[in-house]
Structures are given as C-alpha cells and as structure tokens.
C-alpha cells in the first residue's frame, strides 16, 4: 500500500520532467517512422523490381538490419554520424531507428504489394497507364490499406524501441526514468511511471490505427 502511494506521489511530482522526455520520444518516433516509411517503400520497390542487382541491395540491407541488434546499429550510427559527420545527437538517434524500422516496413510493404491481385495491374496497364502510374494510383493505395494493421504493429514496436536511444545519452522517456532513478536511487517507481507513459502512447496509437482501418474499410 505504501509502495502504491509512493508510486502515485512519484508519478504526479515527476510530470514536468517526464513531459520533456515524452516530447523527445514522440518527436523521435514520428520523425524516425516517417523516414522509415520512405526507406521501406524504397527498398520494397527495389525488391519487387525485376533487376537482380537492385534486389541484392535490398536483400543486403534487410539482412544487415535483421542480423544485428538494434542497440548495435544505434551505436554504430551514433558514433559514425556524430563523430565523423558531426550530425546532432537527435538526428543520429532518428537515423538509427529509421534505418532499423525501414527494413521491417520494407518487408511489410513488399508483402502487401505482392498480395494485390495481378489483374489490378493488368487492368491499369490495359487502360494505357504506365508502370509507375499504375503502381502509384492503383497498386500502392490498395497495398497500404492491406498493410495498415501490420504497419500499426511495427509503429508500436518502433515507439518502444526508441527507448534504446537513451544509451547514446538522449533524455527520452526512458532516459529520464534512468536519470531520475540514478539520482534518487528510487528506481522502481520511476520505471513504473515510464511504463505507464509507454502504455498510454501505445493505447492512443492503437486507437488511431483502428480508426484508420475502419475508415479505409468503407470500400470493402
């Protein structure tokens, strides 16, 4: 009982410090996932192209991302980008996360594109549409619809994975919790607090994804 009261006390009194961390986590997640979608779309299209060397490039990228821990990727990109290219820490973190999520998103989008019936492409081409026009206007809109549940899932993973940027010194939600815990030697309530923040973010995101799914379902 005392523990629970203490947690509520920590939770309410730490609101202002966690707000800063929340802002960084959200900014980082949105920026990195936005870049990841572009990376993912790019590599998905390489993979479905009929040009072998392009497929190899996409395979290589996906192999590297899947074959190494995210924390290693973040460290490599952080030390590479901030030391050698003098890029700010935020962008190094965002690049690391985007580089990672991009591979998974590429596979999600590729699968969705390939699941669209071949007849859709044929109908588009038979109307005189070019390859890229039929991809943009006919295939991709359908593929994105189909990919929404998996993409939502990947976004949730991406938001939670963003906590790893605290290891390169960023004061995101998890970074704030670590710092507060170390400063006060009172780790438990702070990590419990940060768990609540992540739960709330994921709750909101899940709600949004469900809404989007419903809205896109009007044509079904």
């Amino acid at each position: 009982m005392i523990e629970i009261l203490h947690f509520f006390d920590v939770f309410t009194s730490s609101l202002d410090v966690f707000i800063d961390g929340l802002w960084i986590t959200l900014k980082l997640s949105v920026v990195s996932l936005f870049i990841a979608i572009i990376i993912g779309l790019f590599f998905a299209i390489l993979k479905i192209s009929n040009i072998k060397p392009l497929q190899w490039i996409a395979d290589g990228y996906i192999w590297i991302v899947r074959g190494t821990p995210l924390i290693v990727q973040i460290f490599i990109l952080f030390y590479g980008l901030t030391d050698i290219l003098l890029i700010p820490m935020f962008w190094a973190g965002a690049a690391g996360l985007a580089f990672h999520s991009g591979a998974y998103i590429a596979e999600i989008i590729r699968g969705a594109i390939q699941s669209i019936d071949q007849g859709q492409k044929e109908a588009a081409r038979s109307l005189g549409m070019t390859k890229s026009l039929s991809m943009r206007r006919i295939i991709l809109p359908q593929a994105f619809r189909r990919a929404v549940p998996s993409l939502g899932n990947q976004f949730i993973i991406g938001i939670k994975d963003s906590s790893l940027v605290s290891f390169i010194g960023m004061q995101d939600l998890f970074g704030v919790a670590s710092t507060m815990g170390s400063n006060t030697f009172d780790f438990f309530p702070y990590f419990l607090t940060v768990a609540v923040y992540y739960l709330l973010i994921v709750l909101v995101l899940t709600f949004v994804v469900n809404k989007v799914e419903k809205r896109l379902a009007v044509s079904d």
């Binding site: 044929e122 109908a123 588009a124 109307l127 549409m129 070019t130 006919i138 359908q142 044509s219």
Partner: peptide
C-alpha cells in the same frame, strides 16, 4: 501505353479497382 489507349480490354474477373467508386473507376484513366 499509347497503343493500349486505343485497344480497350474487358477481363473475365472484371478487375475493377476496389478502392475507387464506380465513377472513380471510369474516370481514372
């Protein structure tokens, strides 16, 4: 593509664009 503009095709399985309305299908191309 230019040749296909002159040669229309109707398929066994219709292949309508499911994400577009009936009119949307017709005006797309």
């Amino acid at each position: 593509n230019k040749v296909r503009e002159k040669v229309g095709m109707v398929f066994q399985h219709f292949n309508l664009f499911p994400h577009k309305t009936v009119l949307g299908n017709v005006i797309e191309a």
